[in-house]
């Protein structure tokens, strides 16, 4: 982020190291910096300790591990930035997969089957958005309700079993590689990058930040709050369904129980990546870093042979340490200045 020096900075200092120091200071100020630094540290540490971290297979495995979640992260980031959240993503994830699988089993062509799954996600998200804005039920209850409805619907569609017997051409997205890279990983990164650019640059997406930053101010600035929120939850639903469809493509079966607990994992990743539960703050790429961070810790615990019975405990401790450290360093950076000279 470039520094826009509006006020003349004292120009007397012609210290050569100044630009470098400035650059580093700016870099440290970037919200994701601490997280990326921790990720690099952990990765290097694991490589030094085990010698098996930077292998193609391991990196692939880690990336595949967070790919479907990464697709959901885009939607969740929008929901969090708008000042809400979406607890229904785990269930919509399952529902999207189940609907697409059912369609495929009914010999509906693959693109249409995928469209069917996405439509259900859209419907779930749209319903969330309408309930939150028009009926004014808070996002927690609304999406919690949708969590139950979508899960119930997946069970209803499947009568509780997994759906298999899908056409092998459908597995292209989740299993095949392009230029030695899994398609799933390519799709996930594509969505994250596009999502991040949209959130940073697109004027329509900028409105989400205004709404989450100060709803009343946004309203008075001529932003249609309801429309923004409806769009946010609708997109969250679509991306959750898309992730579910990709997951079916990877695992070859649609499981109505898939994605249980996914909502909390995603919210945690986004918060670790810099989203604020108060809204108005957060980036898509930050959410991805959050996912990578959590994935790395999981991976690292197994590589370091932490006994299985201790893994959840260790995970919790590491997470709190990381977030605590990050929060403290943010507070330190954002200390209010004692006096603003004018």
């Amino acid at each position: 982020m470039a520094s826009e020096s509006v006020k003349k900075v004292s120009a007397q200092k012609n210290n050569m190291a100044r630009p470098l120091i400035n650059f580093l200071t700016q870099l440290v100020k970037v919200r994701e910096f601490a997280l990326v630094a921790m990720i690099i540290l952990i990765a290097v540490g694991l490589e030094l300790y085990t010698g098996r971290f930077f292998t193609t297979v391991n990196l692939n495995a880690i990336s595949l591990g967070f790919s479907t979640s990464a697709v959901i992260v885009f939607g969740m980031t929008m929901a969090l930035v708008s000042g809400g959240f979406d607890l229904s993503v785990g269930s919509v994830f399952a529902l999207g997969g189940v609907v697409t699988a059912s369609a495929l089993r009914a010999d509906i062509p693959i693109p249409l089957a995928i469209l069917a799954g996405l439509s259900v996600g859209l419907l779930a998200g749209l319903t969330n958005g309408l309930l939150i804005t028009k009926v004014k039920i808070n996002p927690f209850i609304t999406t919690l309700g949708m969590m139950g409805i979508a899960r119930g619907a997946s069970l209803a569609v499947t009568k509780g079993t997994t759906l298999a017997g899908l056409p092998p051409e459908f597995f292209v997205y989740g299993q095949n590689k392009t230029f030695d890279l899994f398609n799933l990983i390519i799709i996930a990164f594509f969505i994250i990058i596009v999502g991040d650019v949209l959130m940073r640059r697109a004027s329509a997406f900028r409105q989400i930040y205004y709404v989450g930053g100060n709803e009343e101010a946004a309203r008075l600035s001529g932003i249609n709050i309801d429309r923004v929120k409806i769009a946010v939850y609708t997109m969250s639903g679509i991306f959750a369904a898309l992730a579910g469809i990709l997951s079916v493509s990877r695992f070859t079966v649609a499981d109505p129980g898939a994605g249980t607990g996914e909502e909390l994992r995603i919210i945690a990743a986004c918060i670790i990546g810099g989203c604020s539960l108060q809204g108005g703050r957060g980036t898509v790429i930050g959410g991805l870093f959050g996912l990578i961070f959590v994935g790395l810790i999981n991976n690292g615990m197994i590589l370091l042979r932490v006994p299985v019975y201790w893994q959840q405990l260790s995970m919790g401790i590491v997470l709190l340490l990381a977030v605590g450290f990050d929060t403290l360093s943010q507070r330190w950076q954002l200390r209010p200045r004692v006096r603003q000279s004018s």
């Binding site: 826009e4 900028r206 930040y209 205004y210 930053g213 100060n214 009343e216 101010a217 946004a218 008075l220 600035s221 001529g222 932003i223 604020s276 108005g280 703050r281």
Partner: peptide, 17 residues
């Protein structure tokens, strides 16, 4: 409460409308 996006940049506040 109703005017500024306090946590956002000056630039983004000016362009909000």
């Amino acid at each position: 409460q109703a005017g500024l996006f306090l946590e956002m940049s000056l630039k983004q506040n000016v362009s909000a409308t």
